[in-house]
Amino acid sequence: MRKVGLKIRTAGLVLALSALTAGCASIRDHRGYLIDQTLLDSVQPGIDNRLSVEKTLGRPTFISQFGQKDYYYVSQTVRTPPFGRPRTSDETILRVRFDAAGNVVAVDKRGMEQVARISPEGDKTPTLGRHRSLLEDLFGNIGAVGAGGTGSAAPSGPGPNGS
């Protein structure tokens, strides 16, 4: 009877430890366009146009706003570690370029090699000028507002047109 109780406790402990370690795994999430290589290969420059690309690949993630109206399809895989911020682990951007008549010129595929990682320096943005305290910001303009030529209703001297 003691062996059965020991086995149940051991099994419970193993189950509890596996549940705890499973909770520490990062979450993997896909965002954006799902790339199907077969459909992508079926888009041919010089043959397809805007309408056929939309029917084959679907509506684009976004369309360029300047210059030629290129189509962009964005696909991302994001990993979120426990108690951490989400980070993009894989990214693919498809760009379908068109000529003035709306026919496909080229299909470009870019990945994470084009992503620039920037690291800000510290918590503050360096600026030019004076460093003022809160009280100086609140009360610094007292006496300075309207200081030049205030108080008299009638001008003392010739006006702007010489009268």
Rank of each mutant, 00 (worst) to 15 (best):
A100F: 02
E113Q: 11
E121F: 01
G84P: 01
P158L: 15
G122R: 02
N103D: 07
N141L: 13
T127A: 14
V104N: 05
A144G: 04
R87D: 14
G146Q: 05
G149C: 11
G111M: 08
R117Q: 12
A153I: 15
D90L: 09
N103C: 01
E91H: 08
V104R: 00
I142F: 10
K109A: 12
T150N: 03
P126A: 09
D90P: 03
S156A: 13
R110K: 10
E136G: 11
D99E: 01
A116K: 09
R110F: 15
A153P: 01
R130M: 03
V107I: 08
P158D: 15
L134H: 04
P160R: 13
N161I: 08
S133V: 08
L128H: 07
S152F: 03
E113K: 12
L134I: 10
P160I: 13
D123S: 07
I118S: 12
V107G: 03
Q114S: 14
T127W: 00
G140I: 06
G122E: 03
G143A: 08
G151M: 05
S133M: 06
R95E: 15
P120H: 05
H131W: 02
A106S: 14
T127V: 12
T125F: 05
F139E: 01
R132F: 11
L134C: 03
A101W: 00
G159R: 07
N141Y: 05
R117N: 09
I93F: 03
R87Q: 13
E91Q: 15
A101Q: 11
F83D: 09
P120R: 04
N103K: 13
R130D: 14
Q114D: 15
R85C: 01
E91C: 04
L134V: 10
N103T: 11
A144N: 08
S133R: 03
A116C: 00
V107R: 10
N103V: 10
I142P: 00
D123L: 03
F83E: 10
D99P: 02
G129V: 05
E91R: 14
R85K: 12
G111Y: 07
I142L: 14
E136I: 07
H131F: 10
F98T: 04
G151I: 04
G159C: 11
A100Q: 12
R95Q: 15
